[in-house]
């Protein structure tokens, strides 16, 4: 079975780009447009990996990571942050919140797929 990935980003265009990249690589993908939507989605359907933006309305990415990690109904799946934010202090906040990795936009499709592969392999090993 193909690994399943939830993409969380408020930008339709970025979601489409990430979706196309991952779908082409053989993953099953679905989307949420902010952290609150993603939490709701995770309570019904658990992916193998989540990729989330940081700056989003309703619930930002770091709050989403903290909320997901603190929710006993959501298993500890890997969460990659994909953002334009390249500030080391934000990265550290992401790590402390429980993120698995930090990818800075603009992303290169091959690097995104490599990171996804590594993180999913870590999970199954």
């Amino acid at each position: 079975m193909n690994s399943r990935i939830l993409i969380v980003d408020d930008s339709t265009t970025v979601r489409r780009m990430v979706n196309m990249t991952l779908t082409s690589a053989g993953y099953e993908v679905w989307e949420a447009s902010n952290g609150a939507e993603a939490i709701e989605s995770l309570e019904h359907q658990i992916p193998d990996l989540v990729i989330t933006d940081v700056n989003m309305p309703e619930m930002d990415g770091l709050t989403f990571v903290r909320t997901a990690r603190g929710n006993p109904r959501i298993p500890k799946i890997p969460i990659l942050v994909l953002t334009t934010v390249n500030d080391p202090s934000f990265k550290e906040q992401g790590r402390l919140a429980g993120a698995t990795g930090w990818l800075c936009k603009p992303f290169q499709p091959t690097k995104l797929c490599d990171a996804v592969r590594v993180v999913l392999a870590r999970r199954t090993s």
Partner: peptide, 10 residues
């Protein structure tokens, strides 16, 4: 010149 973003795995 901006470049494609870095990848950091924790």
């Amino acid at each position: 010149p901006p470049k494609f973003g870095d990848v950091t795995l924790f």
